[in-house]
């Protein structure tokens, strides 16, 4: 049983191209030339019900295109997709009532003059939510998203963080089983982003929803997604646990120590300040190096850390996966 099933998914566009200059411009009136852009190339993965998966990749990797196909906005040029046993791009009502696609760049659609409560009421009608269920869900969402002060406000007067909270409330008022979140924390400050993360985590815990999340913020991915799908140039480059990706990309760990001595002989020094040292040590030598360090030096404090996720992902984007 899978909630999302993607098999050999491909998407290509024909983009018009021409050389610069008047001659080429006139020529293109008679004969237009196109270049095929391969946005997705044989992408395959499955997501089990209730699983939260992070979908990451550099700009232009194909993340949003995949999200649009899975939600039903785009029709792929090849491959097969099943979401909750439906073909998304047929956009059947029964299917649309079971999914939600929330975009951080456009969290709230529809009339901007309406109040938040009016918009939620419209969602109730649209998604045939029975009134008692609506009231119950709204109470839950009010608590989780701190919605109460926003209910009587007009959509157009909301700040970015408030719009995202309202966008999530509008998407979740009908309790979708599959949630596609495209950059839900984009542009938000640290507190607002953290609030959204906590909310998604609690919503998943309460409802058992399946979530596919794209984000450029590693804090989102690290805190919400036990599984990571890394896509680049339209192809899946990695699919597995986050820790495994880190181990695969970075064969080193960091040993952070506080000492008055000089530990340079024990590993490559990455940082040094006021008696604080950060050493880079091969993963399989961490235990032995730590032991030797403690024996040889007077260590005030010691911690072994994974390399920062941002750096690992940046390395994956720049150099690809080995």
């Amino acid at each position: 049983m899978t909630a999302v099933e993607v098999e050999n998914l491909s998407m290509s566009y024909k983009a018009p191209v021409r050389k610069g200059g008047l001659r080429a411009a006139l020529g293109s009136l008679v004969k237009r030339e196109y270049k095929t852009v391969q946005a997705l190339d044989q992408v395959s993965f499955t997501i089990a019900p209730g699983q939260v998966s992070g979908f990451i990749g550099p700009n232009g990797a194909g993340k949003t295109t995949t999200m649009k196909i899975l939600s039903g906005i785009l029709h792929p040029t090849g491959g097969d997709v099943r979401v909750l046993d439906s073909t998304p791009w047929q956009r059947r009502s029964a299917f649309l009532k079971r999914i939600a696609f929330v975009r951080g760049s456009q969290p709230v659609g529809g009339s901007q003059e309406l109040t938040v409560m009016d918009s939620l009421e419209y969602q109730r009608l649209l998604y045939d939510v029975p009134r008692p269920t609506f009231r119950r869900t709204l109470t839950d969402l009010e608590a989780l998203l701190d919605l109460e002060p926003l209910l009587e406000r007009q959509l157009r007067a909301l700040s970015l963080g408030e719009r995202m909270r309202v966008g999530l409330a509008m998407a979740l008022i009908y309790r979708p089983e599959v949630l596609f979140l495209d950059e839900p924390t984009i542009g938000l400050d640290v507190s607002a982003a953290s609030q959204i993360r906590e909310f998604v985590s609690e919503y998943v815990e309460q409802t058992g929803a399946t979530v596919l999340l794209t984000s450029h913020y590693m804090a989102d991915v690290a805190s919400l997604c036990p599984r990571l799908i890394l896509i680049d140039h339209g192809k899946v480059q990695y699919d597995g646990p986050l820790a495994e990706l880190s181990a695969r990309l970075s064969p080193y760990k960091l040993i952070r120590i506080s000492t008055q001595g000089d530990p340079t002989a024990f590993g490559e020094v990455v940082e040094k300040a006021d008696g604080q040292w950060v050493l880079r040590v091969p993963r399989d030598e961490v235990a032995a190096t730590t032991g030797r360090l403690l024996q040889a030096m007077e260590v005030v404090d010691l911690a072994v850390e994974e390399p920062p996720l941002e750096k690992v992902i940046d390395q994956a984007y720049r150099e690809g996966l080995r």
Binding site: S71, S93, Q106, G110, L126
Partner: peptide
């Protein structure tokens, strides 16, 4: 502006 996508995903 692409907001037609919002409409396409509504069950109506």
């Amino acid at each position: 502006d692409g907001t037609l996508s919002h409409e396409l995903l509504r069950p109506q």
